[in-house]
Simulated assay, not measured.
Amino acid sequence: MAVTIKDVAKLANVSPSTVSRVIANNPRISEKTKEIVNKALKELGYHPNMIARSLAIQSTETIGLVMPSSNGIVFQNPFFPTVLRGLSEGAHDRQFGLHMTTGKTEEEIYEGVRQMVHGGRVDGVILLYSKVDDPILTYLQDNSFPFVVIGKPFTQVEQITHVDNDNYRASKEVTNYLIGLGHKRIAFVGGDLNQVVTIERVLGYESALREAGVEFNDEYLMHEDCTTEGGRQAVKELMHLAHPPTAFVVADDLMALGVLNTLNEMNIRIPDDVSVISFNNTLLAEMSRPPLTTVEINTFDLGFQATKSLIQMLENKNEPIKRIIIPHKLIVRGTCGAAKDSNIVKTGD
């Protein structure tokens, strides 16, 4: 027979309404009472009827997550499992559930978000990306539906709560680091230019070159999928230029792994001949050979703070718009070295 609130109330020697308030985490209930009731809940193995509770408090206590896409390429990148872990922990702390879009195309994802909103399936939405032109963001604004963006919005920055790194500054710092090592032929290997993070990092890269008096070369600017294959394709093109780069700023660790592997196949030594620096500081960075110099962007915190911010918005309709900047740090390992004057000798494809 199922355990009821009345059973819990009897064991804890409180009223059933007090048990309900404890389950709802009502701030008016004392910590001592919460401790007694939670002990009784655990002892009896009581699990609340979430559907009935949602109807009673007019809330699903569920957050919708919108991925760039749900195809296999996204989940190949360690960034997303890490940010999802942060999102999950932030939700768990406040007893919220997560509901993820499952579409593979932009049209399917848009329809999934529309169903979440109009179907009353979620209380708010977190976008795990920021694009130049995003119909989903516009749709959420038009419907006055609570949402938070992981990344800097392309427009209306002051009107949208978002959690991000200072990607412009981070990219400028890593480019300056390579310039400080004597590199002047520095390539930028990035992802989709429709992603705001890519734009910010390109601008930081260009700014560092300009301020250091290093000539900007369009040929050194490459945009591929953020995969190992994308990194591979970029290296093949860049290293066959008349004057190939001696250093690479790469969008993320997964793409950088493709860069490293391809340079090794071409018998180009790292960091003796070419330096490589990346972003995200995933496990791939530690496991690569040599270990990858990369930027720690605290991916877990991006997710955790996004969930925290959205729940604050849901609990307080007057919550102010926030711009939360997660700090970054350059992690120096084994893929960067001083520039050499000698030309690179290519012995492979």
Rank of each mutant, 00 (worst) to 15 (best):
residue 5 I to D: 05
residue 9 A to T: 01
residue 11 L to R: 00
residue 12 A to Q: 01
residue 15 S to H: 01
residue 17 S to W: 05
residue 19 V to A: 04
residue 19 V to S: 01
residue 22 V to F: 06
residue 22 V to I: 11
residue 26 N to I: 10
residue 27 P to A: 05
residue 29 I to E: 03
residue 32 K to S: 07
residue 34 K to G: 03
residue 37 V to M: 00
residue 37 V to W: 02
residue 39 K to D: 00
residue 40 A to Q: 03
residue 41 L to A: 01
residue 47 H to N: 10
residue 47 H to F: 13
residue 51 I to K: 15
residue 53 R to V: 09
residue 56 A to F: 07
residue 58 Q to C: 10
residue 58 Q to P: 14
residue 59 S to N: 14
residue 61 E to W: 14
residue 61 E to L: 06
residue 61 E to R: 15
residue 65 L to E: 04
residue 65 L to K: 15
residue 67 M to H: 15
residue 70 S to Y: 14
residue 72 G to Y: 11
residue 82 T to V: 11
residue 83 V to H: 08
residue 84 L to I: 09
residue 87 L to P: 14
residue 89 E to T: 10
residue 89 E to F: 12
residue 94 R to C: 12
residue 96 F to G: 10
residue 100 M to L: 12
residue 102 T to S: 15
residue 103 G to C: 09
residue 104 K to M: 08
residue 106 E to S: 15
residue 107 E to S: 15
residue 107 E to T: 14
residue 108 E to S: 10
residue 116 M to N: 09
residue 123 D to S: 15
residue 124 G to D: 12
residue 125 V to G: 14
residue 126 I to N: 06
residue 137 L to C: 04
residue 141 Q to N: 11
residue 141 Q to P: 03
residue 149 V to H: 03
residue 150 I to Q: 02
residue 151 G to N: 10
residue 157 V to M: 13
residue 159 Q to W: 07
residue 159 Q to N: 05
residue 161 T to L: 09
residue 161 T to S: 10
residue 163 V to R: 00
residue 168 Y to V: 13
residue 171 S to M: 07
residue 171 S to Y: 11
residue 173 E to K: 13
residue 179 I to A: 08
residue 189 V to T: 05
residue 191 G to Q: 01
residue 194 N to E: 09
residue 196 V to T: 10
residue 199 I to P: 08
residue 201 R to G: 02
residue 202 V to I: 08
residue 204 G to M: 05
residue 206 E to V: 09
residue 209 L to W: 01
residue 209 L to A: 03
residue 215 E to H: 07
residue 215 E to I: 00
residue 219 E to W: 02
residue 229 E to Y: 09
residue 230 G to M: 01
residue 232 R to T: 08
residue 233 Q to S: 07
residue 237 E to R: 02
residue 237 E to Q: 10
residue 239 M to D: 02
residue 239 M to V: 04
residue 240 H to D: 06
residue 240 H to A: 06
residue 241 L to E: 07
residue 242 A to P: 04
residue 247 A to Y: 04
residue 247 A to K: 01
residue 249 V to R: 03
residue 254 L to F: 09
residue 254 L to R: 03
residue 254 L to Y: 13
residue 257 L to K: 07
residue 259 V to R: 09
residue 261 N to Y: 10
residue 262 T to G: 09
residue 263 L to V: 05
residue 264 N to E: 11
residue 264 N to V: 08
residue 265 E to V: 07
residue 268 I to N: 04
residue 269 R to N: 12
residue 272 D to W: 06
residue 276 V to P: 01
residue 278 S to L: 08
residue 287 M to T: 08
residue 289 R to E: 11
residue 291 P to A: 06
residue 294 T to Y: 03
residue 299 T to R: 06
residue 299 T to F: 06
residue 305 Q to A: 03
residue 308 K to L: 12
residue 312 Q to G: 12
residue 312 Q to N: 13
residue 314 L to K: 14
residue 316 N to P: 05
residue 316 N to Y: 04
residue 316 N to L: 04
residue 323 R to H: 13
residue 323 R to K: 15
residue 325 I to W: 02
residue 331 I to R: 00
residue 334 G to R: 00
residue 335 T to Q: 05
residue 336 C to P: 02
residue 340 K to A: 02
residue 341 D to Q: 14
residue 341 D to A: 14
residue 345 V to P: 14
